[in-house]
Computed example of a mutant assay.
Amino acid sequence: MKKPIVSVSWLKEHLDDANLIILDATQKINQNKEECPFDDLQIKGARIFDIKNDFSDTTNPLPNTLPNPDAFAKAAQKLGINKDSKIVVYDNLGIYTSPRAWWLFTIMGHENVWILDGGLPAWAKENLPVQKIEKREYTLGNFESQFNPEMVMDKEQILSNINSKEAVLIDARSNDRFSGETKEPRAGLRSGHIPGSINIPYISLLQDGKFLSKEELVKILPQQDKPLLFSCGSGVTACIDLIAYKLIGDNNRKAVYDGSWTEWGQIDSLPIE
């Protein structure tokens, strides 16, 4: 099984690969209000992968909603991405939005995509080339989407799973949000979690902006013999938990509940614990 992450040293050695494209998936604002000292810098030659606008369905009131395959393909083509491109995606918090970008490419059928472990902070720490953030025009690529619907779930499927228990639902939010001890950062949402879900805060899987070792992840992640579903606040950090399970070699089917708590928490008819 191909690992979904690459190291800074790997990327440094492959900078001259003809088909390599580096994508900066940083979001300027994150729900944790984390700040990065590199907010005006990017890896030299990186292209801006704007999850919030270009690679989300902006007609949907929910944030970061999965775009339709045609819209995704057109946005990828504008970045000069081809069917044979090798993509390395990163963000400026180490590991935060880059797993979401990885998941988007994967659900659209593009296999040659990896996450830069440690992201921009790890790259800059090695004094490797960076530049001021710039948005440029690129020669149109020939990327095509081959959408895999099994990698995403909607609220009806999640509701059905509460009773069937066919899959295990994992919530990547912090423990205090999962337990309902603190208010949600988005206004108007109920507090708590989807009945039957288990809590694995994404932050527990990281150290200094990198994923923990496989040995450490195995100690944290409960082994499952059922398909795995992942949820969070808005479908972003759920992808961190998904990647962590891939890193320990877990071959169970995996899908993201794209609406996540932003959707579930605002619909009073849906059950919560």
Rank of each mutant, 00 (worst) to 15 (best):
A238Q: 14
S179Y: 04
D268V: 02
P61D: 04
E166C: 15
P149S: 10
V6A: 02
S179H: 07
T262M: 04
L217G: 03
W114C: 06
L221E: 13
P149R: 12
M153Y: 14
T106S: 15
E111I: 02
V6S: 02
Q42T: 05
S9C: 00
K135R: 05
A122I: 00
A187D: 11
T65D: 10
W261A: 10
G109P: 06
I21A: 05
P227T: 15
L66N: 05
T262I: 07
Q77F: 03
D91I: 04
L104T: 09
F211D: 10
L205V: 14
I29L: 13
S160H: 11
S191M: 12
N161L: 14
K52A: 15
F55K: 03
I220A: 01
N53R: 08
K210Q: 14
I248C: 00
Q224V: 13
K132V: 04
I203S: 12
V6L: 06
I5V: 09
S204M: 14
T182P: 13
I5C: 08
L169V: 13
I248E: 00
D57M: 04
P227Q: 05
S197P: 15
E166K: 15
N112R: 13
K44E: 08
I107W: 06
A187E: 11
A187T: 08
P67C: 01
F178A: 09
A122F: 02
D57G: 14
P63R: 10
E273G: 15
D268G: 02
K155G: 00
P37G: 10
N142F: 11
G235K: 11
G180S: 06
A122T: 03
A187F: 04
I22W: 02
V89A: 04
N148L: 11
A18V: 08
E134Q: 11
S234Y: 08
N60S: 09
E273T: 14
T106E: 07
W114V: 05
E34D: 13
D17K: 03
E150Y: 14
F49W: 05
N19S: 13
V218H: 08
